[in-house]
Design a protein around this nucleic acid. Structure first.
Lengths: 339, 339
DNA sequence: TACATTTGGTTAATCGATTAAGCAAATATA
DNA sequence: TATATTTGCTTAATCGATTAACCAAATGTA
């Protein structure tokens, strides 16, 4: 029980050959005799040799580490994306370092610094709600490290992006509600400065027009879309002179908060107010009524993000062929919006 | 735009001094003049210098990376533990590498190998359901790397462990159900070979005795405790000659599956059958009826696991003072078990 | 003045794996 | 036999940061 790690030197010492020979033997170099190779491999196994990635990484400039930064791993969406990123990258020999921004810009900057410090080969990220300034993301690019954004990304930043069609999603939702005969559709939205939420708002506004529904200012709000935000906004909507007959929340969490308030006020969904969320979090099928929502293809987004990184990693060419992959979202109609 | 990373050499070249001087200047060595320090720091800032952790790690033998392995990041429990581990470790300059076993022993072994390969300074893990053989975990110990287990751990393995008191939790649950006048309490359990599930089963059996309730073999099952398992077991229980009047599932997911089946059969919970889960997953408060459950203090477990690692990291003494921290769980009574 | 001490650095070794370059011995070729 | 080629290794440099050991110049001390 040596309690210490075996190095090439240990193997070399045991066999009285150079570490170079050992290294080559383990990588099946043609210039090493079969006999030596076998001997080396046997000793390596006996001593439980495990190559030191730090050393190879330092020399080769490749760490086989990929940084992933998400607002939080708590939601099903992000943890599912994460799981799929990890699966794809692991199968190609990469490890994943996970960091969370907790929706804080400061934390996000710190995270980027430590990821760069750790010499990750690439970064896959979804931005915090708070983030407006993109300097720190530019920093990643300026260091020549592939950056892939998903879900929460920015157009200004000229990098790869994987996401769903938020604008169309809003159209699908409004169309569905209009078909149910709803006239006063409210929107509990995210912050406009985040592209995806901006797109959802734009889609909502344009779809209202398309269906000859009037846009009421009081029906639209911006927030972080937490459960609590959903509660607050729903209470506000109920307090209006003419409350809406349908509410489209830009996140399932906000929709859940809204639903709680409806129940507390003994208002029936969908009879009195129809409700639609966004994200297809598992709980939308667990609550009563089940919540109509948009599926974001989290698994596929995770896989695509990982594959996009791998494309960069494979061809070392700096020719940054930009990948913008926009998936078509799917509306899943459930009890909360259809009678 | 150099598109390349700045090294000590670059700074040294710019100032015509040695890299050693630069290194010392950045670490405020007393043998470097204030003037030089200032000059170095200015250039470092201008060139956006970021130390290369691979290099320091290689030399110092400390990577400031900690591996975390969980069955899956999908559940609230694990993602909450993870979030807290990350928070505590980040504040001390460590990064977290996340791997998931997906409840597979093979994947677990692979994960351990890649974590060792990556030269993590420690490993925090919760074992897969499948895992029985502990050789691979012994391997971690034999390399002198701190190993901290939480939730799913094994007594045979002489390592640090953080968890809750599963045995007592079962007692609390059975006592609560007995107080509600329930006589026939079933248990949808996990696999006995996993310690925590074994403890829950033992606690259940002993508590039945204590309350003079008879143990019915048909009332006890072992499974992976997924939603689907909960459904299967509940159907089985409903098919018995004398169905139970209370069901205690060893996971909230199984409890949710059971609840779904009850609803489909229009059986009222808690009126006809009382239901208790385990884990305090958020959805237990979202469903109707809300589910009585055990809170596992996920946040605290994450923090404690991280702190336990830090203790090892701080004192390099090999004196492995064993830490076994067992938290008292909390029963949260909700609608599904109390009329 | 003669020696000691402090200041402010430089040189070189180190961590472990990799690889270009080199070299001796064995084998092939003419 | 003389030369060319192949085989099978060794030597040494490299990646970037750190640090022990060393040294010259400046300053202090008796």
């Amino acid at each position: 029980m040596s309690n210490k790690k075996t190095t090439l030197k240990d193997i070399a010492g045991k066999l009285n050959i150079s570490t170079a020979a050992v290294s080559k033997a383990l990588r099946n170099d043609s210039r090493i005799s079969t006999k030596t190779k076998e001997a080396v491999k046997k000793v390596a196994k006996d001593l439980d040799y495990q190559p030191n990635n730090l050393a190879s990484a330092l020399r080769s400039g490749k760490s086989f580490l990929v940084g992933v930064m998400v607002p939080s791993t708590n939601s099903y969406y992000f943890s599912s994306v994460l799981q799929n990123i990890e699966e794809v990258l692991n199968s190609k020999g990469y490890n994943v370092i996970v960091t969370q921004s907790n929706e804080s810009y400061t934390k996000e900057c710190n995270n980027i610094d430590t990821l760069l410090f750790t010499q990750v080969d690439g970064i896959i990220a979804s931005m915090a709600n708070e983030t407006v300034d993109l300097d720190y993301f530019e920093k990643i690019k300026s260091k020549g490290i592939p950056l892939i954004l998903f879900d929460r990304g920015e157009n200004d930043l000229n990098v790869d992006y994987i996401g769903i069609n938020d604008y169309d999603s809003s159209h699908m939702i409004v169309e569905h509600l209009a078909q149910q005969g709803r006239k006063n559709i409210a929107h509990i939205g995210g912050f406009k400065h985040t592209r995806i939420f901006n797109n959802r708002i734009r889609g909502y506004v344009d779809a209202l027009k398309k269906h000859n529904l009037t846009l009421v200012d009081d029906y639209v709000s911006e927030s972080n879309l937490t459960i609590e935000d959903g509660r607050t906004q729903m209470k506000h909507l109920l307090g209006l002179k003419i409350p809406p007959d349908a509410v489209y929340a830009a996140s399932d969490y906000a929709a859940l908060g809204a639903l709680q308030v409806l129940k507390e006020h003994h208002i029936k969904a969908p009879t009195t107010i129809a409700l639609v969320g966004f994200g297809n979090e598992p709980f939308t099928t667990m609550v009563t009524p089940t919540i109509t929502t948009i599926d974001q293809h989290s698994a596929e987004i995770g896989k695509l993000a990982a594959q996009t990184f791998l494309e960069h990693a494979d061809k070392k060419t700096t020719t940054q062929h930009l990948n913008k992959k926009i998936l078509e979202a799917k509306l899943i109609v459930r009890e909360s919006s259809k009678e």
